[in-house]
Design a protein around this nucleic acid. Structure first.
Lengths: 191, 191, 191, 191
DNA sequence: AATGAATGAGGTTTCATTCAT
DNA sequence: TATGAATGAAACCTCATTCAT
């Protein structure tokens, strides 16, 4: 039993390190050899834990989503909508690095998989659905579409960060978006 | 002299067709052979027009930006901010396919190039700067940062479209964003 | 058109050289690198002609069978059974090297493919059926099973040669088998 | 001392199970992992009993030959040549599975070893010599070459069985060969 | 200009073997 | 003795690029 625990932990450690690499360079631009060298393990070891580079990547996506859920769980939920938007703002800023990398990996993931392929995979379906729900619950918005839309805008900001222009910081951009949302909801959602 | 014109035209035709392919699959996931097959030319011919796959891609990015400028040029500029936002909305919806593909290619481009590398390249510097200006002028916003921010949010919507979820159309999303912006500016920008 | 001919010829030349190598060492014991080095071509070139090592091997088996048919076609058919057996003897001895290698490759082929897999492949079905018929016609035996049985015994001799013991030559062994068959048929088949 | 016995027994059990696997798939097509999984032991355990996959295979060949000798020892020797041929027939049919697998393994063995290598190995020399003698004694044929030849024909039938065509059973084929041999000897060997 | 066969460095993956536990 | 995670050389294969025609 302890061996299984160790093994599982090792697997997660590998995923965690791959997360950074894939986010930075993109799936296709990281070779297994590079990956293993960076991880400090042999190629054989990597293939002991994961059947293929592809599978490693997909498990990474899964794991990454789980971590996102944990973040949402751990965050403080506000009462008023305005407070909840502030909560989201804090969550994003506190975990800036994670969310930026996650956005990068999602884009990669979608480019490397046919849409049909993703639609057929129950795991990714589940992740997708749960992600929307989590977001929706966090903001206490009944409207799933609206929740998704907000996430879409946030994604825009996250991906912008990949390009590394520092003159308009992530924090400022998130804050500005939060303001826009607050302003909009004040006018359009009868609280 | 006419031969050069033909050659130049041929080069642009190739770029135009590559645009779709790269946008859909991503730079690293399209082989030169696929590319040439799709284009209906031989690999030799491709290497006659472009020194490398990389160069082809970069020229594509350049060409793509030129086309974007043309679109902005051809669009009608409104007088009031609200009208100008409506103009942007129309521009985006009328050229949905182009802008979605362009967003995909930009993301690819940034993942495949080190940030430093892009910063050093005068061509990309120029494109970047001009792009911001174009946007800023179109909205008649003095604030470059704000213009860029708006574009950032639009990018979020464009990239979302790559994932192919149809339950919330591009048109609706762009419209909602336009509304948010209008509401925000009404309150925060004294016209 | 001429290019296709060249290409096809080149393909056959490659197969021909592989024939010797696979026969001598066995499919699994020849690496693609060895193969290419021996053939004097690059790995890329090999993969230009054949999609995989496996496919190369299967095409080799097909080609090999075609050549066998040619040999049978070119051989002289006798009138009496005894003459026909002599004809077979001559055919085998004249093409000793080919038949020994072919036997080696068949054994390899059957070990590397599941029986079910072979049974489902129409090409191999056809080869198998035609092979039996060819043999049967050559000996003018109506009985397919008997023809196959004779070939089975010949296979035993062919495979023995792989082991390289020279104290009982192929020629002698084939001759002894021919004598046995003649003796048997004299008694059991009323001519 | 008893521990050595256990160990020795364990070693033989492993060999026995490998026999089936190697016969079915061929040496090169069975990985050590598959082997160990099938055997229900760890790779470490396997390497405790055998220094290498190669050594395991060679010991298997040795053990297999020993078992063959046992079979010959246990069989009933006839008086007349015809009776002795019948005895051989019975021996083969009673141990069909064993002999087919053995034939498969011999072919494999010869393909994976250079002829020179086998010729230099005293163990295989001994096995080979003894095998011929055993056969020769069983049939009470002074002529070693002839004994070997008969075995060669039998091998043809055994190997044919690997290909799994059921329309002409092993039993029938062996019987037909026995008849041929009997007919031939009646005429050519003055009893 | 155009072709597409050829190149070969380098990618992903396998697998016999080792070794800390 | 026994385990199975770890190793790394080497396997098969890909693909941007070149070059004779």
């Amino acid at each position: 039993m302890p061996k299984i625990v160790d093994s599982e932990q090792h697997r997660k450690e590998i995923l965690s390190k791959c997360f950074d690499l894939f986010a930075e360079k993109g799936y296709a631009n990281v070779t297994t050899r590079q990956l293993c060298k960076e991880l400090g393990i042999s190629t054989g070891a990597m293939y002991h834990y994961f059947p293929s580079k592809q599978a490693l990547f997909e498990q990474l996506v899964e794991e990454m989503s789980m971590q996102e859920f944990q973040l949402f769980k751990a965050a403080t939920y506000g009462h008023t909508l305005s407070e909840r938007i502030q909560g989201l703002e804090k969550l994003l800023i506190d975990n800036e690095a994670h969310f930026i990398k996650q956005a990068a990996i999602w884009v990669d993931f979608y480019q490397h998989h046919e849409t049909a392929e993703i639609d057929q995979n129950p795991i990714f379906q589940k992740i997708d659905k749960r992600s929307q729900q989590e977001m929706s619950e966090f903001l206490n918005l009944g409207d799933l579409k609206l929740a998704r839309f907000i996430w879409t805008l946030i994604n825009g900001i996250l991906i912008e960060q990949l390009e590394g222009s520092d003159d308009f910081s992530f924090e400022e951009q998130i804050h500005l978006l939060a303001q826009m949302l607050t302003t909009y909801f004040e006018k359009h959602l009868p609280s």
